[in-house]
Computed example of a mutant assay.
Amino acid sequence: MPPAHPFDVDADKLKEECGVYGVLGPKDAANFVALGLHALQHRGQEAGGIVSHDMGEGFNSVRRFGYVRDNFTKASLMETLPGPVAIGHVRYSTAGKKGAAIRDVQPFFGEFSMGGAAIAHNGNLTNAEELRRELIDRGAIFQSSSDTECIIHLMAHSMAKTIPDRMEDALRKVEGACSIVAMTRTKLIGVRDPMGVRPLVLGEIGEGEGWVLSSETCALDIIGARFVREVEPGEMLVISEDGVESRRPFRPKSPKFCIFEHVYFSRPDSILGGRSVYETRRQIGVELAREVPVEADLVCPVPDSGTPAAIGYAAESGIEFGLGITR
């Protein structure tokens, strides 16, 4: 038998990305969410889920393993997700067991005394294990291995009177990166941690027809939504039919946006921090050609995130650009 591999191959892969998306306004909000998740598929191919709310039918949830196109394009399934507010999540394990049970697939839902709420999270809570032990000691019963479930239990232990206020209480106790999209029966909520590690943007559908929260701007384009602005680090947006309320519930911290969003995670047609992801990658190639010139016959990219950098390197160096690897 061949010798055992010296490390876990799966564990050696980047596992820092997920995609979150939420829509408030259109009567079939879940259909918009499905399109948005399709545009964010590069952020998570392991699984996806959508939660919606309809005043007549209440909360409904569908969670599936696999691609969005294989699960959330069937009319019979989407008809089970009615209502004018919905959120969704595409998963690439960042915490919890990779390839675990369907119970690890977000969004997560909780029923509170003032009504239900669902939450989808992109990031890593660095104190999740400590919080989990503390919550279990206080009687919490966890259903998943995900760090995101800690937020639901922290909300359940809060004595605040509204779900947004309970979310504020919960998020003051967590550490690490979190860009969150959540929903109640009538509200869409977006939160970005004080360091702004992961992206989150606000968009508008039509002229006041609805609102969108998304991990990236590319998922606004697919539904024809207009980019309004980025959710700022440490900001909470509470969106209802009355408009957008901005809150600042956290102590300010120095921004620490993850550079790998520009280098690898995000789609090249997205805009992050006012800058095109494609242009950033192309400029990286230009700078590399200036700093590390080489004699070569061809500049060949490793697709897909390496392609803009290779274009920049070829343009600056004068070496021919060509494709040699396909996937």
Rank of each mutant, 00 (worst) to 15 (best):
E287M: 09
V90L: 06
H53K: 07
T162L: 12
D221F: 01
E129S: 09
C150R: 05
D165C: 07
A128V: 00
G44N: 05
K13W: 13
R43T: 08
T94M: 01
A86D: 07
G44Q: 03
Q45A: 03
R327T: 13
A101V: 06
G66T: 01
I284F: 02
F321K: 06
S76I: 03
W211A: 14
N71P: 09
I87F: 11
S52Y: 06
F321Q: 10
S254F: 10
I151V: 15
F260C: 06
R275K: 13
H38R: 08
D70H: 06
F7L: 15
Q45N: 05
A225Q: 10
E204K: 10
W211P: 00
I223H: 08
C18D: 11
F321L: 15
E232C: 07
A170P: 07
E279T: 12
E287N: 09
A100D: 15
G99E: 13
R138E: 11
V174R: 02
V85S: 13
N124I: 11
N122V: 10
G66Y: 10
N31Y: 08
R247Q: 14
G273W: 05
E291C: 02
I102N: 08
Y313H: 10
V228K: 13
T307C: 13
V105E: 07
I205T: 12
S317I: 02
P3V: 15
P268Y: 01
G99V: 05
I180A: 06
P82Y: 04
S254C: 03
F59R: 09
A86Q: 03
T148E: 10
Q283W: 10
K27R: 13
V51N: 01
L188R: 03
Y313M: 06
I180S: 04
E316T: 13
S179M: 07
M1K: 14
E168G: 02
H42N: 15
D165Y: 01
V299T: 07
P107I: 12
E230R: 06
G66M: 12
F7K: 05
G306F: 08
R166D: 04
E320Y: 04
A177M: 04
R281P: 03
V20S: 11
V51L: 06
L37D: 11
G123A: 08
R281E: 01
P107C: 09
V191I: 15
R247F: 13
I136Y: 01
E209P: 02
L213G: 02
A100L: 04
T94Q: 02
